[in-house]
Amino acid sequence: MQLVLVRHPQPEVAPGVCYGSTDISTSIEAIAQVAASLRTAGLPGGLPVYASPLLRCATLAAALDVPVRLDARLAEMDFGAWEMRAWDAIPRAEVDAWAADLLHYRPGGGESVFDVARRVAAFRAELRHPAALVICHAGTIRLLSALHTGGSIEQAALRAASSPHRIGYGDVIVLKD
């Protein structure tokens, strides 16, 4: 299986704000720029396209003018009460509690990394295409990449959660078996 993973364009949110499942839009210019780069990237034609239903992904997918399957399992992690709060405003004790239990802690009462890993793994397990284009989020990309390397869902979730985040807006990552 080959997965072409694309991170959404930069959302319209202030720097330093925690956002995950909040449905934030992106500028028309950012959508157009990433869509244009995908059209000229030399990606295999005719790939089925899947996308997170959040605006920052769904809008990019729609700009490609191809059939798209929106799948809620590709959405970014729900940070509960942390959503749309400045990271600096989140009590240090809560961030430390998450760092102490990356797998099961529910930041802001939202989802745990394990919850997200299970839904992303279910999406991956149901893919029946030899290749697909997936427009999603950095967290989802990290989980799909970790699942791709093998091991249990728990192991993949811990690898994804403990690895540094270096996926830029509009980046394309290709996973091949």
Rank of each mutant, 00 (worst) to 15 (best):
L3P: 01
V4I: 06
V4W: 00
R7F: 05
H8Q: 06
H8E: 08
P9N: 02
P9D: 02
Q10R: 15
Q10F: 14
P11E: 03
P11C: 03
E12T: 11
V13D: 02
P15K: 05
G16Q: 05
G16M: 05
G16K: 05
V17S: 02
Y19A: 01
Y19V: 01
G20P: 08
S21F: 10
T22N: 02
D23R: 06
E29P: 00
A30I: 04
A30M: 06
A30Q: 04
V34G: 08
S37G: 13
S37I: 03
L38Y: 02
R39E: 13
T40M: 12
A41C: 01
P48C: 15
P48T: 15
V49I: 15
A51L: 14
L55M: 13
L55G: 13
L55K: 14
C57G: 01
A58L: 08
L60S: 07
A63L: 14
L64Q: 10
R69T: 15
D71W: 14
D71C: 11
A72Y: 10
R73W: 14
R73I: 12
R73H: 13
A75P: 03
A75F: 07
E76R: 11
E76K: 11
E76I: 13
M77C: 04
D78T: 06
F79K: 03
E83Q: 08
E83L: 03
M84E: 10
R85L: 04
R85K: 10
A86V: 03
W87D: 00
W87P: 00
D88V: 06
A89Y: 00
A93L: 03
A93D: 09
V95L: 12
A97Y: 08
A97Q: 12
W98E: 04
A99C: 12
L102Y: 14
L103G: 09
Y105Q: 08
Y105I: 07
Y105A: 14
R106C: 15
P107G: 03
G109C: 07
S112L: 02
V113C: 12
F114I: 07
V116K: 00
A117K: 00
A117M: 03
R118D: 04
V120Y: 00
A121E: 00
A122W: 01
E126S: 08
R128N: 08
R128W: 02
L133T: 04
L133K: 03
V134R: 03
A138Q: 12
I141W: 05
I141H: 04
R142A: 11
R142Y: 04
R142D: 09
L144M: 10
L144K: 07
A146L: 04
A146M: 04
H148V: 13
T149F: 10
T149R: 14
G151R: 09
S152F: 08
Q155F: 06
Q155L: 15
A157C: 10
A157Y: 08
L158W: 06
L158S: 06
L158I: 09
L158C: 06
R159C: 04
A160I: 10
A161P: 15
S163A: 15
H165M: 10
Y169V: 05
V172T: 15
I173W: 05
V174R: 11
